[in-house]
Amino acid sequence: MKLPKSLAEFTDRSRVFDVVNPAVRSPKLDTSHGTILYLEDITVSFDGFRALNELTLYIHAGELRCIIGANGAGKTTMMDVITGKTRPDSGTAWFGQSIDLLRLSEPDIAQAGIGRKFQKPTVFEQHTVFENLELAMAGDRRAWKMLFARLTPAQRADIDEVLNVIGLTEHRHRQAGALSHGQKQWLEIGMLLMQKPALLLVDEPVAGMTPQETERTAELLLSLAGRHSVVVVEHDMDFVRSIARTVTVLHEGSVLAEGSIEQVQRDPRVVEVYLGEQA
């Protein structure tokens, strides 16, 4: 019975098959409504534990947003969903109005314009600082092209500029593995910049940094906002206070409160579940 039906479907002349339409792998990012990231009703469960529970969150274009929350609040899982590492059980995730993140693979998402900095600095330790930036550079990523790829003067200038921004110009030919912890963190931010992402996800950028390094990192992130949208996940409340305009508090996989740092800190629920613990 099934065959005649699918045969009828197949011969239906008004139907346009997927194979005929060219696959649109990464349509242009469209932020004309002023929002760059839409997460709606996202739920992720691991063995019955709900890491994200109908999480709904919007990030505006050009915004610097801090996300705080206790361990297990779902911060890292949220990042995993946005970057394609984890698929949610339900919900929708859109990058701008035109790109459905849930249908893209990790490299596709990276190429669409979402860059991620991990909690642990993960630079390529065997490569030099310069090579790390070269690898992260936006552009064609097809394997055969890379055999013949040479840096253009414009690309060199780009790398030089980023080296300057992250303050590693003198270390350009050092192996990344030989850098200090703080320098590695900056190099990683530099690699993010080379990707020219529209949205940067930064996971605990100042963990393990000295106060001076922390201050330098705050300046760096503040200088990025505006040109890029930046989402920072951080535990260090002093650091959050120094950079945040809007803060979102996650708790048990959903948004507990959102607003300026003062508003959030006054919120009795937040004091109870998060700030209260620290006091």
Binding site: T83, E106, P107, A110, Q111, G115, R116, F118, T122, F124, E125, Q126, H127, E131, E134, L135, A136, R141, R142, A143, M146, L147, F148, A149, M191, Q195
Partner: peptide, 27 residues
């Protein structure tokens, strides 16, 4: 070549290479 630096990056940290947008399996 740059291809060579990318495969070395894959050797050292495959997940990271994927996250900066390389199709590791093609390489």
């Amino acid at each position: 070549s740059r291809f060579g630096r990318i495969i070395a990056a894959i050797r050292d940290s495959e997940g990271r290479t994927r996250f900066i947008g390389y199709r590791v399996e093609h390489y």
